[in-house]
Computed example of a mutant assay.
Amino acid sequence: MSDAACTNASSASPVADQRWMVPLSLFALYVIWGSTYLGIRYALVSYPPFTLAAIRFAIAGVLLFAVLRFRGEAMPTARQWKNAAIVGTLLLAGGNGLVCFAEQSVGSGIAAVAVASMPLFAAVFSGIYGEWPSRGETAGLLLGFLGVIVLNLGAGLAGSPLGAIALIVAAMSWAFGSVWSKRQDMPKGPMNTAAQMLCASVSLAIIAFLHGERVPAHPEAGATAALAYLVVFGSIIAFSAYLYVLKTVRPALATSYAYVNPPVAVLFGVALAGEHVGGFDLAGMAIILIGVGIITMMRVRKT
C-alpha cells in the first residue's frame, strides 16, 4: 500500500468510527439513561439518595480506572484532576445526586420530565461563551420542551416543592458542567469518565455524611440489583457515551437525550411497573421526538 493510500485510510477511519459511534452513543443515552430513573426508584428502597449515588460512582470509577491503568492509559495531570473534580461534582453530585434526592418524593417519570429542561439551560450557558444555538436548533429545543409539558399533562403533579426545586437545580448544575467542561483541559478518552466518577464519589460521600445518611446493613436484593444496573449500564456505558458525544457533536444534539428520556422512562414504567399511558403521554412523546429530529437535521446541515 502506498503512503497516500495509508494516509487516506487513516484519515477515513475516524470518520467511519464517528458514523457508527455517534448513533450508538445517542442510543445509549436515550434508552439506558431513560431506564435509570426507574432503576434509581428501585434502589432507593434500601439505599439513601446521596449514599446510593456515592456507592454507584465509586464502584464504577474504581473499576474503569483500574482497567484503564492496566491497559497503560496515562494518569491525568494535576490540572486535569482539578477540572475533573469540578465537572464531576457539577454533573454527578449536583446533577445525579439531586435527582436521587428528589425521587424520594417525586415519581421517576416526573423526575425525567423536570430534568428535560436541561438543554434550555445548556443553550443559555453556551450563549454566555458566544455559542448561541441556531434558529433551527432553538425551534427544536422549544418544541422539545413543549413536548415534555404535554407529556406531563397526562399525570398528576404530586411531587413535593423541595423535590421539584432539587430537580431544577440538578438540571442547571448538569447543564453548566457540560458547557464548562468543553472549554477545559480534561483527561483524555475514557479516563475522563473514570476521573469524574472518582471525584464525584468523594463529593457525594461528604454530602451523604453531612445529610446524616448511612450505608444500609441489610439491603434488599432487588435494590442491590438496581444499584448494579446503575453502575454498569447507567454509569460506565451511558456516561462514557455522553462524554463522547459532548466532545463530538454540537451541544444541542449532545443534550437532546433529556427530551427522549421522559417517554423512555414512561415506557419502562408501563412495561415493568404496571403504569398506564394516556393520550397526553403519547402526544408528548411524539412532539419530543419531532423536536429531537429537528435538532438532528440542523446538526447534519452544519457538518
Rank of each mutant, 00 (worst) to 15 (best):
M172E: 02
L162I: 15
R56F: 06
A158C: 02
R214L: 13
L204H: 10
S13R: 15
V169Y: 00
F176D: 02
V150K: 03
V106Y: 09
G34C: 11
V124G: 05
G107W: 08
I59S: 05
R250A: 09
R71M: 01
A254Y: 06
S2H: 04
T224M: 13
L92N: 01
G130N: 14
K302A: 13
A5K: 12
P49M: 06
F101A: 10
L282D: 01
A228M: 14
F280H: 05
A258Y: 07
A171I: 04
L227P: 01
V62T: 07
D17G: 07
M172H: 01
L143E: 01
G140T: 09
L63Y: 04
E220S: 14
A66L: 12
Y129D: 12
L157D: 12
F101N: 00
A102F: 11
M186D: 07
A271N: 00
I110V: 11
A114T: 06
S2R: 02
K182E: 12
S173G: 11
G159K: 08
A194R: 06
A171E: 03
Y242K: 03
P14Q: 07
N152G: 15
I110Y: 08
A223V: 08
N192W: 03
M75W: 11
P48S: 05
S160Q: 10
L198I: 14
T7K: 13
V99H: 09
P23L: 04
E275D: 08
L68C: 11
V15P: 00
F280W: 05
A166C: 11
K302F: 06
M1S: 12
I294Q: 11
N8W: 06
Y42K: 13
V169H: 02
V245W: 05
F121E: 00
A205I: 01
P219W: 10
I59D: 00
P262W: 12
S108M: 09
F125W: 07
